[in-house]
C-alpha cells in the first residue's frame, strides 16, 4: 500500500511467457502491458490458444513469467518466494475455473472452506462464513451435498463461493461459463456483476462477446500480445 500507485491492483510490464519443453519452444505471451485498477471488471477476449489462460495463471500467481515484471498491489512478484505466492493466493486471490475444480470427495461445505483451512481459521468461524457465502450465491441448501449430486450451475456457484470465502481483492475467472448452458451462464455472470458492484476487482476470460458486455473494460489477446478493445462507463 505504501508503494507508488496504490489504486492499481495489477501492473504488467513487458511480460513474456515462453514454454520450453520436449515438444519445443513456444512464446505464449510476448511483451504484454496491462494495468488493472481496483474495482474494475476486465474482460479478456481472444481466440483459442492465444494465451489467455497463460496470462490468467501468471496474474493468479500459479505460474511465473519468463520475462518482464508483474506488480500485484505494487509488490514485484519476481522477488517473492513460492511460499509467499501461495500465501497471496490464499489471502488475496479467488479463482474460478471453467471446469469448476471442486474436490469430488469433499462436500460443498468442505470444498468452500478449503482456503480458510489454509488460513488456519477456527471451525466455528469457517462454518459461519461458508453459510454466509453459500447463501450469497444461492445454494445454502446444498451445503452438505457432494459436487456430483448438484447441477453444473450449482457446482460453479459453489466454486464462486470458494473464491469469495477469503474476501479476496481480486477474482480471476477463466471461462467460468464455458461448461454451462446459456441461461445458467447468464446467472453466473449476474452473480459476478453483483460482486463487482460490491467492490471486488474481477478479471474474466471469455470468448463470448455477449458476456463481455458485463465488463467495464475489454482487452484482447492475440498471438501473445494484448490490446485494448473497449472501455465503458
Amino acid at each position: 500500500m505504501e508503494k507508488s500507485k496504490p489504486e492499481i491492483v495489477i501492473e504488467l510490464t513487458k511480460l513474456a511467457k515462453r514454454y520450453d519443453d520436449e515438444a519445443g519452444v513456444y512464446d505464449a505471451l510476448k511483451k504484454v502491458e496491462l494495468k488493472v485498477r481496483a474495482g474494475e471488471f476486465l474482460a479478456v477476449m481472444g481466440p483459442s490458444g492465444s494465451g489467455k489462460s497463460t496470462l490468467m495463471n501468471i496474474i493468479g500467481l500459479l505460474d511465473r513469467p519468463t520475462q518482464g515484471n508483474y506488480l500485484l498491489d505494487g509488490v514485484d512478484t519476481n522477488t517473492l518466494s513460492d511460499k509467499d505466492l501461495a500465501k497471496l493466493r490464499r489471502d488475496r486471490i479467488g479463482f474460478i475455473f471453467q471446469n469448476f475444480n471442486l474436490l469430488p470427495r469433499l462436500s460443498i461445505m468442505q470444498n468452500v472452506e478449503l482456503p480458510l483451512i489454509y488460513q488456519k481459521i477456527r471451525t466455528a468461524e469457517r462454518k459461519r462464513r461458508v453459510r454466509e457465502v453459500l447463501s450469497e450465491v444461492g445454494i445454502l441448501d446444498k451445503i452438505d451435498s457432494k459436487p456430483n449430486r448438484v447441477s453444473g450451475g450449482q457446482v460453479q456457484r459453489a466454486a464462486i463461493a470458494r473464491a469469495l470465502i477469503n474476501k479476496p481483492s481480486l477474482i480471476l475467472a477463466d471461462e467460468p461459463t464455458g461448461n454451462l448452458d446459456t441461461k445458467t451462464g447468464l446467472g453466473i455472470m449476474e452473480l459476478l456483476k453483483k460482486l463487482n458492484n460490491d467492490g471486488v476487482t474481477i478479471v474474466l476470460v471469455t470468448h463470448n462477446p455477449e458476456l463481455s458486455h458485463y465488463a467495464s473494460r475489454i482487452v484482447e489477446v492475440r498471438d501473445g500480445l494484448l490490446s485494448e478493445k473497449e472501455v465503458r462507463k
Binding site: 513460492d82 501461495a86 500465501k87 493466493r89 490464499r90 479463482f95 475444480n101 474436490l103 489454509y118
Partner: peptide, 16 residues
C-alpha cells in the same frame, strides 16, 4: 495430482 493443483490454487503451501 489434480487435487494437489486445486489445493495449491487455493493457497496451500509446500508445507501444507
Amino acid at each position: 495430482t489434480k487435487e494437489i493443483g486445486i489445493r495449491k490454487a487455493m493457497g496451500a503451501t509446500f508445507g501444507n
